[in-house]
Structures are given as structure tokens and as C-alpha cells.
Amino acid sequence: MSSLSADGFDVPDGIGPLASGTSVLLTGDDADALESVFARVVAPADGERSVVLTTEHRGRAVQRTLNGERRGAGDRAAVMAAEGAASGDDITAIDDLADLTGLGMAFSSLVAEAQQETERFRTGIYLCSTVASEIDDTRSLYRFLNSNFLTELRRGNGIGVCAIDTSADIGADVESTVTGLKTSFKTHIDVDATDRRNAELAVDGPDGERTLDVAL
């Protein structure tokens, strides 16, 4: 499989290629299916680096998942993890998910470091809904997404994916929140797990709407 398609970022199963600057809002109510699709989008190809913020797993587990998607992808990824301890240069621990000031600075710093190695990068937040559930005021999450997530994509040569578990309690109407967030992202992918091994993706992006059947 080619690591680059034209100047786009390769994503398997017909999801990509995604143009540089593409922000993907990934939604669904099945966390396993969501995670599987998330990993496909964020796994860095050769010549790319990834920065992943995970609220659910240890850093090593994320790197292994990325390796499962693309050979050596985990070694090209820096992970900020809310679970487990820091390890080496590539895994940092998140002490407090509600500290969006610290989280944002650490995230931006890692993206800047990644760009020192290669200009092509991918970023991901899994799960943004968990961050939302940890904070008191959703306005700070919007500020974080605007300042630290979407901004990096506008300025650099990268793509980003932000995952929301729509079954989570985020302290607000999830459907309404997702409808609002969709307008700030270039592409929306809704993941509907049809059974334990398969999912239907509803992709709504710059090229219009389409559906994809993918194996999980």
C-alpha cells in the first residue's frame, strides 16, 4: 500500500486519502468500533509523525494498536495518556484531564516537536467526550479545540481526528453538541457498528456524502 496518495494522507478502507488540513470529527456509540476507525486515521505512514491524546488507554497500548494498523506506526507516535505512567520520550502522562491549559500546552509542544522531525503529521484525541465529561464549562473545551487542535491543522501539513462517544454523558445534549461541532470540522465520520466485526461508516466531507462498509 502506498504511504502517500498524491499529497494527501493515506487512510485505508476507502476512508482516505485525506487532504492536508483535514479535521475529522469521528462519532459513534460503540467505543470499540470508534477506536478501530480512529486508529486507521491517526496511524502515521513512513515519513510522518503522530501525536495522540488518549483518555482511555495506556500509552504503550495505543502504540501497539497503531502498529496493528501500520507497521512501525507506534514508534512514530507520541502519546499523551490519561492511564498509566510516562515512559521514554514518546509517552507522557496526563495528570488531570480537566487541566485544559496544561493539556493544550503539552499537546501543542508535542506537535511542534513532531514537525521538527518531519513536516507531515497526524493528531488525534480519543475520547473528546471523556474530556468534555471532566470539565465544568464546555467553553474551555471549544477554546482548546480551536487553539490547540484545529489551529495546528490550519498552520501545518497534517490531519487530525477527534473522537466522540455519543453514548457518553458529557453534561450536555450530545446530539446538539455534535451538530455544532460538525460545522467546525471538515469531515464527519459516523461509525455504526453493524455487528462485532463490521461497521458502516457514514462519511460527510468536502467530496459529499458516502457510506463505507469496513471490517473492524
Binding site: L100, T101, G102, S108, I135, S140, T151
Partner: peptide, 11 residues
């Protein structure tokens, strides 16, 4: 004391 203030961080 600034958990929900967002700044741009430039190293």
C-alpha cells in the same frame, strides 16, 4: 489556578 485558560505554547 488556570486550568481552563487556553494559551498558545511556543517553545
Amino acid at each position: 489556578s488556570f486550568e481552563e485558560s487556553i494559551v498558545e505554547y511556543l517553545n
